[in-house]
């Protein structure tokens, strides 16, 4: 007993949850943070509370990363996404723990991590198949080869749903697999897994800026993202029904592609809809015989 009390107790080294912008982990420009509690209301950690200027910086980072990411071969993007799945697998225990802290039971947390990794691998496989599925060789009445190919839309703003891991990967993977870059506003009540997920991205050969993660108040950040003239599309997955309309109106200013919220069960078969929502079609006419 006396021996134990003489030794000083070791202090735990706790993680500071920050933002993920351009491949780095900065604090919010505003210096703000907010308290994140677990399912029972006990303190878990302080998360950064991003401001509109962090949104601006994240969009700049995403725009900068776009050319390089879109210019990679689909095969290479698939490899990198698969690498992310490998890293997720390696951190499985950490994600299970964070999901349990967010309120899930042990079995449910395990199942969600499994589903999230499987979902990511599923999307990784689509990287080099989208061109074949989304494109076509078109028959035309003239001496031309005519073909259409899918191209990434650009910078996609994503308001992530509250499903902290499965929901997050289900909205991020389909946006980036085709060559888009994105700015994600993480789940407001449980943002911590999204920052841990950002650590996975930072160690998986994914170029900095392809995915940028902001934590904070959705109602504060989403309007700035929706109105930003340098954002080409917005996924409103995590937006409450009564807020959708104003965000859609803001997004209309530069004709953003808008994906309205609809999914409630993230474990269901996703389909290709989320990928094709953020694609443009380029059609080329090429004279025959030249």
């Amino acid at each position: 007993m006396s021996e134990r009390s003489e030794r000083s107790e070791r202090l735990a080294v706790r993680k500071t949850y920050k933002l993920f912008i351009g491949g780095a982990f900065p604090r919010s420009e505003s210096g703000r943070s907010y308290v994140v509690n677990d399912g029972k209301g006990t303190f878990l950690a302080n998360a950064s509370q991003a401001s509109r200027k962090d949104v601006r910086d994240a969009v700049v980072a995403a725009r900068k990363a776009f050319g390089g990411w879109a210019g990679r071969t689909p095969y290479n993007r698939g490899q990198i996404l698969y690498r992310i799945a490998e890293m997720l697998e390696g951190r499985r225990a950490q994600f299970v723990e964070e999901l349990r802290a967010a309120g899930l039971a042990k079995a449910a947390a395990n199942a969600e991590v499994d589903a999230a990794i499987d979902r990511w691998v599923w999307y990784a496989g689509w990287a080099d198949k989208l061109g074949a599925v989304g494109g076509s060789a078109n028959p035309v009445a003239g001496p031309f080869f005519n073909f259409s190919t899918p191209e990434p839309t650009g910078v996609v703003g994503i308001v992530a749903p509250d499903s902290p891991l499965l929901g997050l990967v289900s909205v991020v993977a389909p946006a980036i697999v085709s060559g888009n870059t994105c700015v994600v506003i993480a789940s407001e009540p449980s943002p911590l897994p999204s920052i841990t997920f950002a650590e996975v991205l930072a160690t998986s050969d994914l170029p900095g800026g392809v995915v940028n993660v902001l934590t904070g108040r959705r109602d504060e950040l989403a309007p700035w993202l929706a109105a930003h003239m340098d954002v080409n599309a917005i996924d409103l997955a995590g937006v409450a029904r009564d807020r959708v309309r104003t965000l859609e109106e803001a997004a209309a200013e530069n004709l953003k592609r808008v994906l309205r919220p609809g999914v409630t069960d993230w474990s269901a078969e996703p389909g290709t809809g989320r990928m094709t929502a953020f694609l443009e079609t380029k059609t080329v006419w090429h004279p025959v015989g030249v």
């Binding site: 109105a227 930003h228 003239m229 340098d230 954002v231 200013e253």
Partner: peptide, 9 residues
Amino acid sequence: TGVYSGPDY
């Protein structure tokens, strides 16, 4: 305008 602009414009 109150919204962030982009280099496209």
